[in-house]
Each structure stands twice: as structure tokens, then as C-alpha cells.
Design a protein around this nucleic acid. Sequence first.
DNA 1: TTTCGTCAAGCTGAT
DNA 2: ATCAGCTTGACGAAA
Length: 290
Amino acid sequence: MRLGYACINESLKPKKFRSIRLKTIQTKGIDYLKYIVLENLEFLLEVLEWNSAHDIYFYRISSDIMPLITHPEVTALGWQWQKDKEVIDALDKIRVFKLKENMRLSMHPDQFTVLNSLRPDVVKSSMEYLVYHADFLEAVSGDDMILHVGGVYGDKPAAMMRFIHVANSLPDKVKTYLRIENDDKSYNIYELLSISEQTGLPVVFDFHHHRCLVDDHVTKDLLDKIFSTWTGIPKVHISSGKRHPKDRSHSHYIDDDDKSWVYMLEQYDVDIMIEAKGKEKTLLKLREDL
DNA sequence: TTTCGTCAAGCTGAT
DNA sequence: ATCAGCTTGACGAAA
């Protein structure tokens, strides 16, 4: 069982990943974006090395590691990171280290990735964004990317049908990495299992989202069903509410009551992503508490 | 060096 | 109508 955290490493501050504004790329040129990307990849390796030194073998890479990389005005500049020797070399170093350490590397495309949006332009850019994630994961030998279903617009059955249709039409290289997750407002775990049946996409179970939206008892039968959607090692998300258990806003740490989830999972071969404001510090504390 | 308005992007639900 | 929240505050111009 690997415990993981997402994106930000507080211990390495003030060093951090960099982003960039569109205007800056236009002012300073595409080479400046490339410079930021290379810096970020170098720092990613540093984060992974820090993780390994602290026995952490599961990590979510920020989608912003290559900021604005699929923006039309940036792609129009003609730079293809997939074919850039220096970028390939940097990615390759990460891949070699990742494989040597047997790490799990994930990504989580942002909230504006809506495959079943009613706006065709949103669907198109979402698909392009997923291709970027798949290319990146392929380059570093990453494991998966997680997406919410979204796009309800007051008619969930229709939204689910649209999602299934678009998901099934995705390029194979995207499908290889794509996983779907239950959320805290719209799609519960049972709906996710139904979508999984019709798309073949594995389901990531988020315990906190489940509590916010459904709040029934999580049975062994349910976990078995969820994990059977996977061919590889499944993954779940845990987090605690900030002000009360059902608070959708994430707490800094994992509440004592919620540690029971980890014990519940002991009998499975499963990785746990901790979504807490305290990041890697929350992970280290949780591991100590357990 | 610090402050603070702003940053590509969608959608939902609370206020 | 506005805005927090979500995978995540950081960028960068101006003081």
C-alpha cells in the first residue's frame, strides 16, 4: 500500500513549480516557456528524490508543469515539447528514476476539462488537454490520470450518455491512462460504476466525496465492485472536511475518525492518495499515527 | 522587497 | 447576482 500526495511539497519551499502568463510568453518568446518547463521538470525530479528519501512512492504531478502548453496561441508558435531533445532528456531522467523506485505517478486534469460539456469548443479543448496528459504520462512512464464526469446541466441521464459517447471515442493512448472518480455534488459511486461498465474505464473511489454526496455505509461488496474495474493496482482518495465531516472544503489533516478507511483497505492491494491541505506533512503524520 | 490585482479554460450550489 | 470550491496560488507590474 502506497500513500501519496498531490503536487505541492511544502518541505522544499521556497522552491516550487513555476507558472507563466500568456502575455509573458508573447513578450519573452516561446524559449522562455521552454525554460520554465525545463526548470519545472528539474524540480519534479528533485521532488521525486525527496519523496523517495522519505519513503513516499506515490505522487500526483501538477497539470501546470507545462503551463499553457495546449493554449491555441501557444501551439501556434510551433514548439512541440514532445520532439524537443532537452525536454525529452529531462523527462527520460524522471522516467528512469520513477521505474527504479517503483513509484506511482498520476495526474489530474483541471476542472475545466469537461468531456460532456454542451459546448463543442469545450469538448474539443478538453480532449486536446487529455492528449497532452497522455503524452506526458507516456514520456515519464506514468500510471494514470483522473477525471470527474461533470456537465450535468439539470439532466444527468443525458449527461452520462454524452460522457460515455465521448469517452469511447477518445484516442487509445488517452483511454489507456484515463480513470474516473466520484465527486461530491453530482455523480455518486453507483453512477460511476455504471459509466465504467459502458466505457471500460477504471473507477477511483473518493471516500470524502462519497460521504458528502451519499453518506451510506461503505461495504466490502462495494469496494470489491470498484476494484474489479481495475486491471492494475487500484487507487482511492481520502480527505477530511475542514469545519465538519461533510464540509466539501478540505481539512489540513486527516481526522482520526477517517483513519478507519485506511484500516478498511488493509486487506487490499491499493494505493491511497491523500488530498489534504497539509500535503506531504499530512502524509508523514498519518503514517506515523497508523 | 512587498503588495495586490489578475490570471485561458467550466460548472455547481451556497449565499 | 456573486462567488467559493475544485487537483493547485503564483505571476508580475507597481509601489
